[in-house]
Design a protein around this nucleic acid. Structure first.
Length: 495
RNA sequence: GGGGAUAUCGUCUAGAGGUUAGGACGAGGGAUUUUCAGUCCUUAAGCCGGGGUUCGAUUCCCCGUAUCCCUACCA
Protein backbone atom coordinates (compact mmCIF):
# COMPACT_ATOMS: atom_id res chain seq x y z
CA UNK A 1 0.00 0.00 0.00
CA UNK A 2 1.45 3.35 -0.99
CA UNK A 3 2.03 5.83 1.76
CA UNK A 4 -0.04 8.98 1.65
CA UNK A 5 0.77 11.69 4.15
CA UNK A 6 -0.31 15.25 4.53
CA UNK A 7 1.01 18.53 5.80
CA UNK A 8 -1.89 20.62 7.03
CA UNK A 9 -0.86 24.20 7.68
CA UNK A 10 -3.17 27.03 8.63
CA UNK A 11 -2.78 30.41 6.96
CA UNK A 12 -1.96 32.31 10.10
CA UNK A 13 1.20 33.93 8.75
CA UNK A 14 4.62 32.73 7.77
CA UNK A 15 5.07 29.10 8.82
CA UNK A 16 6.58 28.33 12.19
CA UNK A 17 9.76 26.26 11.99
CA UNK A 18 8.07 23.56 14.06
CA UNK A 19 5.42 23.16 11.40
CA UNK A 20 8.05 23.07 8.75
CA UNK A 21 9.80 20.27 10.55
CA UNK A 22 6.65 18.15 10.41
CA UNK A 23 6.39 18.97 6.73
CA UNK A 24 9.94 17.73 6.29
CA UNK A 25 9.25 14.52 8.19
CA UNK A 26 6.21 13.91 6.02
CA UNK A 27 8.16 14.56 2.88
CA UNK A 28 11.06 12.36 3.92
CA UNK A 29 8.80 9.46 4.77
CA UNK A 30 7.23 9.54 1.35
CA UNK A 31 10.53 9.89 -0.49
CA UNK A 32 11.79 6.98 1.55
CA UNK A 33 8.86 4.61 1.25
CA UNK A 34 7.22 5.84 -1.92
CA UNK A 35 3.80 7.41 -2.10
CA UNK A 36 2.39 10.90 -2.12
CA UNK A 37 2.98 13.93 0.01
CA UNK A 38 -0.14 16.07 0.20
CA UNK A 39 -0.44 19.60 1.48
CA UNK A 40 -3.86 20.75 2.53
CA UNK A 41 -4.74 24.24 3.61
CA UNK A 42 -6.64 24.30 6.91
CA UNK A 43 -8.40 27.63 6.58
CA UNK A 44 -11.49 26.87 8.61
CA UNK A 45 -10.90 29.47 11.26
CA UNK A 46 -12.35 32.68 9.86
CA UNK A 47 -11.79 34.73 12.99
CA UNK A 48 -10.43 38.12 11.93
CA UNK A 49 -6.76 38.28 12.80
CA UNK A 50 -6.37 34.54 12.67
CA UNK A 51 -7.25 34.10 9.05
CA UNK A 52 -4.40 35.60 7.04
CA UNK A 53 -4.60 34.70 3.37
CA UNK A 54 -1.30 36.52 2.81
CA UNK A 55 0.34 33.72 4.73
CA UNK A 56 -0.52 31.24 2.01
CA UNK A 57 2.22 32.52 -0.23
CA UNK A 58 4.75 32.12 2.58
CA UNK A 59 3.64 28.55 3.08
CA UNK A 60 4.13 27.80 -0.58
CA UNK A 61 7.48 29.54 -0.70
CA UNK A 62 8.80 27.79 2.37
CA UNK A 63 8.10 24.38 0.89
CA UNK A 64 9.71 25.34 -2.39
CA UNK A 65 12.70 26.85 -0.64
CA UNK A 66 13.31 23.72 1.37
CA UNK A 67 12.75 21.56 -1.66
CA UNK A 68 9.98 19.61 0.00
CA UNK A 69 7.39 20.24 -2.65
CA UNK A 70 4.11 18.35 -2.24
CA UNK A 71 2.97 15.87 -4.84
CA UNK A 72 -0.58 17.07 -4.42
CA UNK A 73 -1.63 20.47 -3.14
CA UNK A 74 -3.69 23.49 -3.98
CA UNK A 75 -0.98 24.83 -6.22
CA UNK A 76 -0.73 21.90 -8.61
CA UNK A 77 -3.92 20.03 -7.83
CA UNK A 78 -4.27 16.28 -7.62
CA UNK A 79 -6.76 13.47 -7.56
CA UNK A 80 -8.18 14.19 -4.12
CA UNK A 81 -8.90 17.89 -4.31
CA UNK A 82 -9.83 20.47 -3.54
CA UNK A 83 -6.90 20.92 -1.17
CA UNK A 84 -8.28 23.99 0.51
CA UNK A 85 -10.77 23.21 3.23
CA UNK A 86 -12.88 26.31 2.69
CA UNK A 87 -13.65 24.88 -0.74
CA UNK A 88 -14.93 21.65 0.76
CA UNK A 89 -17.69 23.03 2.99
CA UNK A 90 -20.57 20.98 1.53
CA UNK A 91 -18.61 17.84 2.24
CA UNK A 92 -18.25 18.61 5.92
CA UNK A 93 -21.91 19.42 6.23
CA UNK A 94 -22.85 16.18 4.57
CA UNK A 95 -20.62 14.12 6.85
CA UNK A 96 -21.70 15.99 9.96
CA UNK A 97 -25.33 15.29 9.09
CA UNK A 98 -24.45 11.68 8.59
CA UNK A 99 -23.12 11.55 12.13
CA UNK A 100 -26.25 13.23 13.46
CA UNK A 101 -28.44 10.69 11.71
CA UNK A 102 -26.44 7.80 13.07
CA UNK A 103 -26.66 9.22 16.59
CA UNK A 104 -22.96 9.93 16.88
CA UNK A 105 -23.45 13.68 16.92
CA UNK A 106 -26.13 16.16 17.85
CA UNK A 107 -27.20 19.74 17.40
CA UNK A 108 -26.36 22.06 20.24
CA UNK A 109 -28.21 25.36 20.63
CA UNK A 110 -26.29 26.64 23.62
CA UNK A 111 -25.12 30.23 23.33
CA UNK A 112 -21.49 31.19 23.60
CA UNK A 113 -22.42 33.20 26.67
CA UNK A 114 -23.83 30.18 28.40
CA UNK A 115 -20.77 28.13 27.53
CA UNK A 116 -18.46 30.83 28.74
CA UNK A 117 -20.34 31.28 32.01
CA UNK A 118 -20.29 27.53 32.54
CA UNK A 119 -16.55 27.38 32.05
CA UNK A 120 -16.00 30.28 34.44
CA UNK A 121 -17.99 28.58 37.11
CA UNK A 122 -16.27 25.26 36.64
CA UNK A 123 -12.90 26.90 36.89
CA UNK A 124 -13.77 28.86 40.00
CA UNK A 125 -15.13 25.72 41.63
CA UNK A 126 -12.04 23.82 40.64
CA UNK A 127 -13.96 21.09 38.87
CA UNK A 128 -13.09 19.74 35.40
CA UNK A 129 -14.16 22.02 32.60
CA UNK A 130 -16.30 20.84 29.73
CA UNK A 131 -19.69 20.99 28.11
CA UNK A 132 -22.54 19.83 30.34
CA UNK A 133 -24.21 18.05 27.41
CA UNK A 134 -27.56 19.66 28.03
CA UNK A 135 -28.43 19.47 24.32
CA UNK A 136 -27.40 15.85 24.01
CA UNK A 137 -30.90 14.65 24.95
CA UNK A 138 -33.90 15.35 22.75
CA UNK A 139 -35.72 17.00 25.61
CA UNK A 140 -32.84 19.19 26.70
CA UNK A 141 -32.09 20.23 23.15
CA UNK A 142 -35.67 21.20 22.38
CA UNK A 143 -35.88 23.17 25.57
CA UNK A 144 -32.75 25.06 24.67
CA UNK A 145 -33.96 25.68 21.13
CA UNK A 146 -37.24 27.16 22.35
CA UNK A 147 -35.42 29.30 24.88
CA UNK A 148 -33.05 30.68 22.28
CA UNK A 149 -35.89 31.12 19.80
CA UNK A 150 -37.76 33.36 22.18
CA UNK A 151 -34.58 35.30 22.99
CA UNK A 152 -33.64 35.88 19.39
CA UNK A 153 -37.03 36.02 17.76
CA UNK A 154 -35.91 33.68 15.01
CA UNK A 155 -34.73 30.13 14.57
CA UNK A 156 -31.51 29.94 16.64
CA UNK A 157 -28.16 28.91 15.17
CA UNK A 158 -26.64 25.66 16.31
CA UNK A 159 -23.40 23.76 16.24
CA UNK A 160 -22.98 20.06 15.79
CA UNK A 161 -21.22 18.27 18.58
CA UNK A 162 -19.72 14.85 18.75
CA UNK A 163 -21.62 12.51 21.07
CA UNK A 164 -18.55 11.15 22.78
CA UNK A 165 -19.12 7.65 24.18
CA UNK A 166 -20.01 8.07 27.83
CA UNK A 167 -17.98 5.12 28.97
CA UNK A 168 -15.26 2.82 27.75
CA UNK A 169 -11.90 3.79 26.41
CA UNK A 170 -10.45 5.16 23.24
CA UNK A 171 -7.06 3.83 22.26
CA UNK A 172 -4.69 5.90 20.18
CA UNK A 173 -2.01 3.91 18.41
CA UNK A 174 1.00 6.11 18.04
CA UNK A 175 3.88 4.71 16.05
CA UNK A 176 6.44 6.51 18.17
CA UNK A 177 4.86 6.49 21.61
CA UNK A 178 2.94 3.26 21.46
CA UNK A 179 -0.66 2.75 22.50
CA UNK A 180 -2.17 5.47 24.61
CA UNK A 181 -5.41 4.77 26.41
CA UNK A 182 -7.89 7.51 27.18
CA UNK A 183 -10.89 7.14 29.42
CA UNK A 184 -13.88 8.36 27.43
CA UNK A 185 -15.35 9.92 30.54
CA UNK A 186 -12.60 12.50 30.50
CA UNK A 187 -13.34 13.53 26.93
CA UNK A 188 -15.58 16.42 25.98
CA UNK A 189 -18.33 16.55 23.37
CA UNK A 190 -16.23 18.33 20.79
CA UNK A 191 -17.82 20.82 18.44
CA UNK A 192 -17.54 19.47 14.89
CA UNK A 193 -19.42 22.03 12.84
CA UNK A 194 -19.54 25.66 13.85
CA UNK A 195 -22.47 28.04 13.50
CA UNK A 196 -20.77 29.70 10.54
CA UNK A 197 -20.91 26.42 8.65
CA UNK A 198 -17.19 25.79 8.90
CA UNK A 199 -15.92 22.57 10.43
CA UNK A 200 -13.51 22.38 13.31
CA UNK A 201 -10.18 20.61 12.95
CA UNK A 202 -11.54 17.32 14.21
CA UNK A 203 -14.27 16.95 11.63
CA UNK A 204 -12.37 18.45 8.72
CA UNK A 205 -9.30 16.34 9.30
CA UNK A 206 -11.15 13.12 9.88
CA UNK A 207 -13.16 13.58 6.71
CA UNK A 208 -10.31 14.83 4.55
CA UNK A 209 -7.79 12.28 5.71
CA UNK A 210 -10.30 9.57 4.94
CA UNK A 211 -11.33 10.93 1.56
CA UNK A 212 -7.75 11.63 0.56
CA UNK A 213 -6.60 8.19 1.53
CA UNK A 214 -4.11 9.40 4.11
CA UNK A 215 -2.25 6.48 5.67
CA UNK A 216 0.00 8.27 8.17
CA UNK A 217 -0.76 11.40 10.13
CA UNK A 218 2.43 13.06 11.28
CA UNK A 219 1.70 16.14 13.39
CA UNK A 220 3.08 17.94 16.39
CA UNK A 221 2.92 16.48 19.86
CA UNK A 222 0.54 19.23 20.92
CA UNK A 223 -2.14 17.18 19.18
CA UNK A 224 -1.57 14.09 21.24
CA UNK A 225 -3.72 15.08 24.17
CA UNK A 226 -6.72 15.65 21.92
CA UNK A 227 -6.06 12.56 19.82
CA UNK A 228 -8.79 10.60 21.57
CA UNK A 229 -11.40 13.01 20.26
CA UNK A 230 -9.88 12.82 16.81
CA UNK A 231 -9.97 9.03 16.84
CA UNK A 232 -13.46 9.06 18.32
CA UNK A 233 -14.71 11.03 15.31
CA UNK A 234 -13.10 8.55 12.95
CA UNK A 235 -14.58 5.67 14.91
CA UNK A 236 -17.99 7.31 14.77
CA UNK A 237 -17.81 7.17 10.98
CA UNK A 238 -16.76 3.54 11.18
CA UNK A 239 -13.45 4.18 9.47
CA UNK A 240 -10.04 2.84 10.34
CA UNK A 241 -7.82 5.53 11.81
CA UNK A 242 -4.58 6.26 9.96
CA UNK A 243 -1.30 5.53 11.67
CA UNK A 244 -0.54 8.39 14.00
CA UNK A 245 2.87 9.86 14.66
CA UNK A 246 3.49 12.69 17.09
CA UNK A 247 7.02 14.06 16.90
CA UNK A 248 8.04 16.00 20.01
CA UNK A 249 7.54 19.72 20.34
CA UNK A 250 10.25 22.28 19.71
CA UNK A 251 10.83 24.46 22.76
CA UNK A 252 12.54 27.77 23.34
CA UNK A 253 15.57 28.12 25.64
CA UNK A 254 13.18 28.63 28.57
CA UNK A 255 11.52 25.29 27.80
CA UNK A 256 8.28 26.83 26.67
CA UNK A 257 6.77 26.20 23.26
CA UNK A 258 9.03 28.02 20.81
CA UNK A 259 7.57 31.45 20.11
CA UNK A 260 8.50 34.90 18.89
CA UNK A 261 9.86 36.03 22.19
CA UNK A 262 12.63 33.45 21.96
CA UNK A 263 13.91 34.93 18.73
CA UNK A 264 13.11 34.06 15.18
CA UNK A 265 10.54 31.34 14.72
CA UNK A 266 9.10 32.09 11.34
CA UNK A 267 10.53 30.70 8.23
CA UNK A 268 10.79 34.05 6.46
CA UNK A 269 12.86 35.50 9.27
CA UNK A 270 15.50 32.84 8.84
CA UNK A 271 15.60 33.33 5.13
CA UNK A 272 15.98 37.08 5.54
CA UNK A 273 18.88 36.62 7.90
CA UNK A 274 20.62 34.48 5.38
CA UNK A 275 20.12 30.88 6.39
CA UNK A 276 20.60 28.40 3.59
CA UNK A 277 17.75 25.99 2.91
CA UNK A 278 19.91 22.91 3.28
CA UNK A 279 21.17 24.12 6.66
CA UNK A 280 17.69 24.90 7.89
CA UNK A 281 16.43 21.54 6.73
CA UNK A 282 19.35 19.59 8.14
CA UNK A 283 19.05 21.34 11.48
CA UNK A 284 15.29 20.97 11.72
CA UNK A 285 15.39 17.29 10.87
CA UNK A 286 17.84 16.68 13.69
CA UNK A 287 15.58 18.37 16.23
CA UNK A 288 13.65 15.31 17.27
CA UNK A 289 15.09 12.75 14.94
CA UNK A 290 18.37 10.90 14.88
CA UNK A 291 20.06 8.66 12.37
CA UNK A 292 21.10 6.33 15.17
CA UNK A 293 24.60 5.44 16.21
CA UNK A 294 26.13 7.25 13.26
CA UNK A 295 28.27 10.03 14.69
CA UNK A 296 27.41 12.64 12.12
CA UNK A 297 25.20 15.64 11.93
CA UNK A 298 25.70 16.98 8.44
CA UNK A 299 23.57 15.13 5.91
CA UNK A 300 22.63 15.82 2.33
CA UNK A 301 19.05 15.36 1.26
CA UNK A 302 19.65 11.97 -0.39
CA UNK A 303 21.46 10.83 2.72
CA UNK A 304 18.54 11.87 4.86
CA UNK A 305 16.06 10.07 2.65
CA UNK A 306 18.17 6.95 2.85
CA UNK A 307 18.33 7.08 6.64
CA UNK A 308 14.96 8.45 7.60
CA UNK A 309 12.58 6.31 9.55
CA UNK A 310 9.82 6.85 12.07
CA UNK A 311 11.73 4.81 14.65
CA UNK A 312 14.39 7.51 14.79
CA UNK A 313 11.93 10.11 16.03
CA UNK A 314 12.54 10.90 19.66
CA UNK A 315 9.87 11.18 22.30
CA UNK A 316 10.99 14.14 24.31
CA UNK A 317 10.82 17.80 23.36
CA UNK A 318 13.87 19.54 21.92
CA UNK A 319 15.13 23.02 22.62
CA UNK A 320 15.87 25.12 19.57
CA UNK A 321 19.58 25.90 19.74
CA UNK A 322 20.20 29.03 17.71
CA UNK A 323 23.96 28.67 18.13
CA UNK A 324 24.03 25.24 16.61
CA UNK A 325 21.91 26.36 13.69
CA UNK A 326 24.40 29.15 13.08
CA UNK A 327 27.29 26.76 13.21
CA UNK A 328 25.60 24.46 10.76
CA UNK A 329 24.76 27.30 8.42
CA UNK A 330 28.40 28.35 8.46
CA UNK A 331 29.40 24.83 7.53
CA UNK A 332 27.03 24.86 4.59
CA UNK A 333 28.17 28.30 3.50
CA UNK A 334 31.74 27.04 3.31
CA UNK A 335 30.67 23.94 1.45
CA UNK A 336 28.76 25.92 -1.14
CA UNK A 337 30.18 26.95 -4.48
CA UNK A 338 31.53 30.47 -3.78
CA UNK A 339 29.62 31.85 -6.73
CA UNK A 340 26.34 31.01 -5.10
CA UNK A 341 27.32 32.69 -1.84
CA UNK A 342 28.54 35.75 -3.72
CA UNK A 343 25.18 36.06 -5.41
CA UNK A 344 23.25 35.71 -2.17
CA UNK A 345 25.51 38.18 -0.38
CA UNK A 346 25.08 40.72 -3.13
CA UNK A 347 21.35 40.53 -2.46
CA UNK A 348 22.01 41.24 1.21
CA UNK A 349 24.19 44.22 0.31
CA UNK A 350 21.44 45.55 -1.91
CA UNK A 351 18.86 45.08 0.78
CA UNK A 352 20.92 47.11 3.24
CA UNK A 353 21.71 49.74 0.61
CA UNK A 354 25.45 49.25 0.68
CA UNK A 355 25.30 48.92 -3.07
CA UNK A 356 22.78 50.10 -5.62
CA UNK A 357 19.91 48.12 -7.05
CA UNK A 358 20.98 47.31 -9.63
CA UNK A 359 24.60 47.58 -8.56
CA UNK A 360 27.12 49.47 -10.67
CA UNK A 361 29.93 47.67 -12.48
CA UNK A 362 32.51 48.80 -9.97
CA UNK A 363 30.32 47.74 -7.04
CA UNK A 364 29.91 44.32 -8.59
CA UNK A 365 33.61 44.09 -9.22
CA UNK A 366 34.45 44.90 -5.63
CA UNK A 367 31.73 42.57 -4.32
CA UNK A 368 33.06 39.69 -6.39
CA UNK A 369 36.53 40.25 -5.03
CA UNK A 370 35.56 40.83 -1.42
CA UNK A 371 32.83 38.30 -0.70
CA UNK A 372 34.93 35.20 -1.39
CA UNK A 373 37.44 36.57 1.11
CA UNK A 374 34.75 36.77 3.81
CA UNK A 375 33.13 33.40 3.30
CA UNK A 376 35.15 31.60 5.95
CA UNK A 377 34.10 34.19 8.48
CA UNK A 378 30.36 34.05 7.86
CA UNK A 379 27.78 32.07 9.73
CA UNK A 380 24.75 33.79 8.28
CA UNK A 381 24.71 35.67 5.01
CA UNK A 382 23.54 38.95 6.52
CA UNK A 383 26.83 39.16 8.39
CA UNK A 384 28.37 40.24 5.11
CA UNK A 385 26.81 43.66 5.68
CA UNK A 386 28.96 44.83 8.61
CA UNK A 387 31.93 43.06 7.07
CA UNK A 388 31.54 44.86 3.77
CA UNK A 389 30.75 48.21 5.26
CA UNK A 390 34.31 49.60 5.30
CA UNK A 391 34.69 48.53 1.71
CA UNK A 392 31.54 50.08 0.32
CA UNK A 393 31.31 53.26 2.31
CA UNK A 394 33.53 56.26 2.12
CA UNK A 395 36.00 56.28 4.98
CA UNK A 396 37.45 59.64 5.79
CA UNK A 397 39.69 59.51 8.79
CA UNK A 398 38.67 59.57 11.59
CA UNK A 399 35.04 59.21 10.50
CA UNK A 400 34.11 55.59 10.21
CA UNK A 401 37.27 54.40 11.93
CA UNK A 402 36.94 52.28 15.03
CA UNK A 403 38.15 54.29 17.96
CA UNK A 404 39.89 51.48 19.75
CA UNK A 405 41.61 50.35 16.60
CA UNK A 406 42.92 53.84 15.99
CA UNK A 407 44.10 54.22 19.56
CA UNK A 408 45.97 50.98 19.43
CA UNK A 409 47.61 51.00 16.03
CA UNK A 410 47.67 54.47 14.58
CA UNK A 411 49.56 55.83 17.56
CA UNK A 412 52.78 53.91 17.08
CA UNK A 413 55.76 56.24 16.80
CA UNK A 414 56.74 55.09 13.31
CA UNK A 415 53.24 55.54 11.87
CA UNK A 416 53.96 58.57 9.70
CA UNK A 417 57.06 57.29 7.95
CA UNK A 418 55.36 53.92 7.54
CA UNK A 419 52.32 55.33 5.81
CA UNK A 420 54.48 57.70 3.79
CA UNK A 421 56.61 54.85 2.48
CA UNK A 422 53.55 52.70 1.76
CA UNK A 423 52.03 55.45 -0.29
CA UNK A 424 55.21 55.71 -2.30
CA UNK A 425 55.56 51.97 -2.73
CA UNK A 426 51.92 51.27 -3.61
CA UNK A 427 51.91 54.13 -6.09
CA UNK A 428 54.85 52.65 -7.90
CA UNK A 429 53.72 49.06 -8.08
CA UNK A 430 53.41 47.85 -11.65
CA UNK A 431 51.26 44.87 -10.67
CA UNK A 432 48.35 45.10 -8.23
CA UNK A 433 47.80 41.71 -6.72
CA UNK A 434 47.95 40.22 -3.19
CA UNK A 435 51.34 38.55 -3.52
CA UNK A 436 53.04 41.58 -5.00
CA UNK A 437 51.54 43.71 -2.26
CA UNK A 438 52.73 41.31 0.38
CA UNK A 439 56.25 41.18 -1.02
CA UNK A 440 56.46 44.93 -1.09
CA UNK A 441 55.30 45.32 2.50
CA UNK A 442 57.61 42.58 3.70
CA UNK A 443 60.58 44.34 2.26
CA UNK A 444 59.35 47.60 3.72
CA UNK A 445 59.31 45.96 7.15
CA UNK A 446 62.91 44.88 6.59
CA UNK A 447 63.85 48.31 5.37
CA UNK A 448 62.39 49.97 8.44
CA UNK A 449 63.67 47.21 10.72
CA UNK A 450 60.19 46.48 12.00
CA UNK A 451 58.49 43.22 12.73
CA UNK A 452 56.03 42.18 10.06
CA UNK A 453 53.11 42.27 12.51
CA UNK A 454 54.12 45.78 13.51
CA UNK A 455 53.51 46.86 9.94
CA UNK A 456 50.49 44.76 9.18
CA UNK A 457 48.28 46.00 11.98
CA UNK A 458 48.66 49.75 11.56
CA UNK A 459 48.23 49.34 7.85
CA UNK A 460 45.04 47.37 8.24
CA UNK A 461 43.56 50.01 10.48
CA UNK A 462 44.68 52.84 8.20
CA UNK A 463 43.13 51.20 5.16
CA UNK A 464 39.96 49.61 6.56
CA UNK A 465 39.38 51.36 9.87
CA UNK A 466 39.10 47.96 11.57
CA UNK A 467 41.32 45.44 13.27
CA UNK A 468 39.48 42.48 11.86
CA UNK A 469 38.88 41.45 8.30
CA UNK A 470 40.29 39.35 5.51
CA UNK A 471 44.00 38.90 5.03
CA UNK A 472 45.47 42.38 4.69
CA UNK A 473 46.82 42.01 1.18
CA UNK A 474 43.64 40.45 -0.09
CA UNK A 475 41.76 43.35 1.42
CA UNK A 476 44.02 45.97 -0.14
CA UNK A 477 43.90 44.21 -3.46
CA UNK A 478 40.10 44.09 -3.40
CA UNK A 479 39.81 47.69 -2.35
CA UNK A 480 41.93 48.85 -5.28
CA UNK A 481 44.86 51.17 -5.59
CA UNK A 482 42.95 54.38 -5.80
CA UNK A 483 40.90 53.95 -2.65
CA UNK A 484 43.83 52.51 -0.73
CA UNK A 485 46.05 55.47 -1.49
CA UNK A 486 43.27 57.86 -0.76
CA UNK A 487 42.74 56.38 2.69
CA UNK A 488 46.42 56.24 3.51
CA UNK A 489 46.73 59.87 2.55
CA UNK A 490 43.71 60.91 4.54
CA UNK A 491 45.12 59.27 7.65
CA UNK A 492 48.59 60.68 7.11
CA UNK A 493 47.30 64.19 6.67
CA UNK A 494 45.05 64.06 9.69
CA UNK A 495 47.58 62.65 12.11
C1' G B 1 -9.02 21.35 38.81
C1' G B 2 -9.05 17.20 34.92
C1' G B 3 -6.41 14.46 31.12
C1' G B 4 -2.00 13.09 28.36
C1' A B 5 3.16 12.86 27.35
C1' U B 6 8.28 13.14 28.60
C1' A B 7 12.92 12.68 31.76
C1' U B 8 21.30 10.74 29.49
C1' C B 9 26.70 16.51 29.71
C1' G B 10 24.27 23.79 29.68
C1' U B 11 21.93 22.30 24.51
C1' C B 12 20.86 18.42 20.36
C1' U B 13 21.48 13.31 20.87
C1' A B 14 23.70 7.69 20.61
C1' G B 15 22.69 3.79 23.86
C1' A B 16 17.64 -0.77 23.57
C1' G B 17 20.70 -5.51 31.25
C1' G B 18 27.30 -6.10 31.82
C1' U B 19 30.22 0.11 27.76
C1' U B 20 36.39 3.70 30.02
C1' A B 21 28.20 6.02 28.89
C1' G B 22 29.90 7.70 22.37
C1' G B 23 29.31 12.08 18.96
C1' A B 24 27.94 17.30 17.90
C1' C B 25 26.98 22.65 19.39
C1' G B 26 28.61 25.78 23.15
C1' A B 27 32.70 26.57 26.98
C1' G B 28 38.25 26.05 28.46
C1' G B 29 43.37 25.00 26.62
C1' G B 30 46.91 24.34 22.59
C1' A B 31 48.80 24.42 17.34
C1' U B 32 48.69 27.19 12.60
C1' U B 33 48.94 32.67 11.56
C1' U B 34 48.81 38.80 9.56
C1' U B 35 43.88 40.35 13.02
C1' C B 36 39.17 37.92 13.23
C1' A B 37 37.49 33.61 11.42
C1' G B 38 38.54 28.86 9.66
C1' U B 39 41.14 24.26 10.24
C1' C B 40 43.54 20.55 13.42
C1' C B 41 44.54 18.62 18.43
C1' U B 42 42.85 18.68 23.39
C1' U B 43 40.13 19.34 28.50
C1' A B 44 35.93 19.75 31.58
C1' A B 45 30.87 18.49 31.59
C1' G B 46 25.53 13.76 31.96
C1' C B 47 22.21 8.85 33.21
C1' C B 48 15.92 13.40 38.15
C1' G B 49 14.82 10.76 43.16
C1' G B 50 13.03 6.30 45.67
C1' G B 51 11.51 1.48 45.55
C1' G B 52 11.38 -3.10 43.07
C1' U B 53 12.75 -7.25 39.02
C1' U B 54 17.73 -9.31 38.26
C1' C B 55 23.94 -12.20 39.72
C1' G B 56 23.91 -7.21 37.59
C1' A B 57 20.30 -1.67 36.07
C1' U B 58 21.20 4.56 32.40
C1' U B 59 18.42 0.56 30.08
C1' C B 60 12.56 -3.27 32.38
C1' C B 61 8.22 -2.26 36.18
C1' C B 62 5.93 0.92 40.03
C1' C B 63 5.74 5.42 42.86
C1' G B 64 7.34 10.33 43.52
C1' U B 65 9.17 14.77 41.50
C1' A B 66 9.89 18.11 37.55
C1' U B 67 8.76 19.89 32.80
C1' C B 68 5.73 20.40 28.54
C1' C B 69 1.06 19.88 25.95
C1' C B 70 -4.41 19.72 25.81
C1' U B 71 -8.67 21.27 28.55
C1' A B 72 -12.19 27.08 22.64
C1' C B 73 -17.93 27.49 17.82
C1' C B 74 -8.14 27.92 17.24
C1' A B 75 -5.56 24.96 14.49
Amino acid sequence: MPVRVRYAPSPTGSPHVGNLRTAIYNWLLVRKLGGQFIARLEDTDRTPGRYMPEGIWDIEESLRYLGTIPDEWWVSGGTSGPYIQSERLPLYKEYADRLVSSGHAYRCYCSRERLEAMRQEQQSKGIPTGYDRCCRTDVGREEMRIKRLSELGHEPPFVIRLAMPLEGQTVVHDLVKGDIVYDNRTQDDQVLLKTDGFPTYFLACAVDDHLMGVTHVIRGDDWLSSAAKFVAVINAFGWDPPALVHPPLILGPDRKKLSKRHGSTQFTEFVDQGYLPEALLNFLVLLGWSAGDENRELFTLPELIERFSLEGISEHPAIFDYDKLKWMNGMYIRQSPPGRIVGLCIQQLQKYKLIGDPPSESELDLARKLIPLEIERMKVLSEIVPMAEPFFTELKFPDGYEEKAVAKWLTVEYIKPLLQREIEIFSGLSVWDPSTLEDSVRSLADEMELKFAGVIHPTRVAVTGRTVGPGLFDAIWALGRETTLQRLNSVLEAL
